[in-house]
Design a protein around this nucleic acid. Structure first.
Lengths: 137, 137
DNA sequence: GAGGATTTGCAAACGATTTGCAACGGCCAA
DNA sequence: TTGGCCGTTGCAAATCGTTTGCAAATCCTC
């Protein structure tokens, strides 16, 4: 078994959640692919027609709540999901304005910077995470 | 008339688009407010019950295509719109994880950096714009 | 393997956004 | 200023992604 999946399974168990076939398969799909997927794409790749689309939605919600996956909203109507930073490393996305293709970049231009300070003002705001998407061609 | 609106009107005309009441009013709302608004919020603030919600959607699409407004997707189901950079200046958003409040920050931690270079790789990708949202409390 | 709690499949409900179409209203030419 | 053309609007219905209620199926503990 892929180590990430094992870690996640332990996490679920610790959170009192069952390790079920739909959840396992959704994770299998996410670990196998190198870019964010739409829910319907994940569902299509499950390879098990018995699994219902709403179970995929529910699994993704759970994973998102447990910080196992990250949710991306990139402009077309549908959300995309990918494994969270802890399982895939911190990265950002290049989104092509023309064809819509999405690619990962692992280098982060904000790395090591104190964002709170860099932004000045808003002292009351504690930055917990950031989301940076680059649009271009 | 507010100068930004005049500039935008000229832009529309140049693009062969009519300057109509719904379009003008949508812009009036957007220039009057200092943070991104949901479509339905914009519609509610128009002050003219004759204007239909779909006209607001269509106006916003047009404005988006002409780079007059910027579209933000921040996680709850609805898109938010604000005037584009050229009319409000470059800025980013602080999104509160707890209450959902959104605030602008005008300081940009990426300012003056060569993003293409900072990201390495992807030489074929020309960055045209970026979107940075900070989540925290 | 049995029992109880958690999940699932299914189908219907939902909210945001889009669309077809006839009526309307900007805008240019006369 | 007026007439008319073509883009734009209002309306209502369709669409899309996502969520939900509920009974049946599955998972986990003992």
């Amino acid at each position: 078994m892929i180590p990430e999946i094992d870690r996640i399974r332990t996490l679920l168990t610790a959170a009192g959640c069952a390790w079920t076939r739909p959840r396992a398969q959704v994770l299998a799909v996410l670990t196998a692919v190198a870019h964010p997927l739409r829910v319907e794409e994940i569902h299509r790749r499950l390879g098990d027609p018995r699994i219902n689309l709403s179970s995929v939605y529910r699994a993704l919600h759970l994973f998102h709540r447990l910080n196992v996956v990250r949710r991306l909203l990139l402009g077309d109507g549908a959300a995309r999901y990918e494994l969270a930073e802890a399982y895939r490393g911190h990265h950002h996305h290049l989104v092509c304005d023309a064809c819509g293709r999405i690619e990962d970049v692992s280098r982060c231009p904000l790395e090591g910077r104190d964002l709170g300070a860099a932004l000045g003002a808003a002292a009351a705001f504690a930055v917990r995470s950031h989301s940076l998407e680059l649009f271009g061609l």
